[in-house]
Nucleic acid binder design. Structure first.
Length: 311
DNA sequence: AACCCGGGGGG
DNA sequence: CCCCCAGGGTT
């Protein structure tokens, strides 16, 4: 039996991937709290925002606490922003926490406290982009959408395109190709979204893929081609960390989160030697709504987390 | 399209 | 020590 070349966007390829990956998912899916029969759309949305650039293992405890304190969008809308930022903890990118609270307010005011099931309405919410909107449609409501995160992109790059990794940025052609693989039936589409993403997270990993455990290893274009190396190797420059504004901001936020009283400027200055950079970061944090300054011109300034919501 | 935005864990 | 992680917003 000769090996047939894989045809992009072909129904045969779609079915060949979907059935085995769906079956694999049924047996191997992680038991995550935002899945499960008692899940809420709000819980799914919260998990998706937290999972933007933060690994599952770190999200788990934060999500559990968060849902205990603010089980509905209205609960979060009414919360103190300082409490929200403290609950966010060290998940990183704390502006996501602000957007999530704004999102809770928008849902309360515009959608009667109910997370929308319409993708366009979701996309209009603060902090919700193309991925998160599609994910809520699929995972919260079992609807049909094109869920294309870093995991799915990698799975498709390997199985369909035959490259080790997807391109650094999402392309229009890639979205179209992924959309063509999504089954018409909403329930099957939702299963495809969940299973292809889970395969990328557990088996078809970026660093050391476990092809021996992959349900579609025999179909995989990358494997068939002999695992060619990434075309973009060496071109992916990792973001600097030491000495950056992001590190400085992170230190300030960590200090403010742990403080029970407004922090005197002297304590903030102890965090960072470059005074110009520190002031730039403090101004930016205030402008972002992540910090507040108090104290008159002739008095020592203090810094703290925002007590109330921004606007 | 390019850049900015945290933080930590695993190879 | 490098790389990656269920991205989004701004310019």
């Amino acid at each position: 039996m000769p090996i047939e070349p894989l045809l992009l966007d072909s129904p045969e390829l779609a079915a060949g991937l979907r059935a085995p990956i769906g079956a694999w998912f049924a047996a191997n899916a992680r038991d995550l709290p935002w899945r499960g029969p008692d899940r809420t759309a709000w819980g799914v949305l919260v998990s998706e925002v937290m999972l933007q650039q933060t690994p599952v293992v770190r999200v788990l405890p934060a999500w559990t606490d968060w849902m205990t304190w603010w089980p509905t969008p209205r609960d979060l809308a009414a919360a103190s922003t300082a409490d929200v930022l403290r609950a966010w903890g060290r998940l990183g990118y704390p502006r996501r926490a602000l957007r999530l609270q704004e999102c809770g307010r928008a849902i309360a005011e515009l959608h009667d406290g109910v997370v929308p099931c319409d993708e366009a309405a979701l996309l209009a919410l603060p902090g919700v982009g193309a991925y998160t909107a599609a994910a809520v449609v699929a995972f919260a409501y079992g609807g049909r959408s094109v869920v294309l995160d870093t995991n799915v992109r990698r799975v498709l790059a390997r199985t369909v395109t035959g490259t080790a990794l997807p391109t650094p940025s999402l392309t229009v052609a890639e979205v179209r190709s992924a959309a063509a693989l999504v089954p018409a039936d909403p329930a099957e589409a939702a299963l495809w979204a969940a299973s292809s993403m889970e395969l990328g997270a557990l088996v078809c990993t970026a660093r050391a893929p476990r092809c021996e455990a992959c349900p579609v290893a025999e179909l995989c274009a990358w494997r068939r081609a002999g695992y060619p190396v990434d075309a973009h190797v060496g071109r992916r420059r990792t973001q600097a960390w030491a000495g950056t504004d992001r590190q400085a901001r992170g230190r300030v936020m960590a200090l403010l989160r742990e403080a029970l009283e407004p922090v005197p400027r002297s304590a903030v200055e102890d965090l960072w030697t470059d005074r110009v950079q520190l002031d730039r970061c403090l101004d930016a944090l205030v402008a972002d709504g992540l910090a507040e300054v108090s104290g008159a011109e002739d008095q020592p300034r203090t810094y703290r987390l925002p007590a109330a919501a921004v606007s």
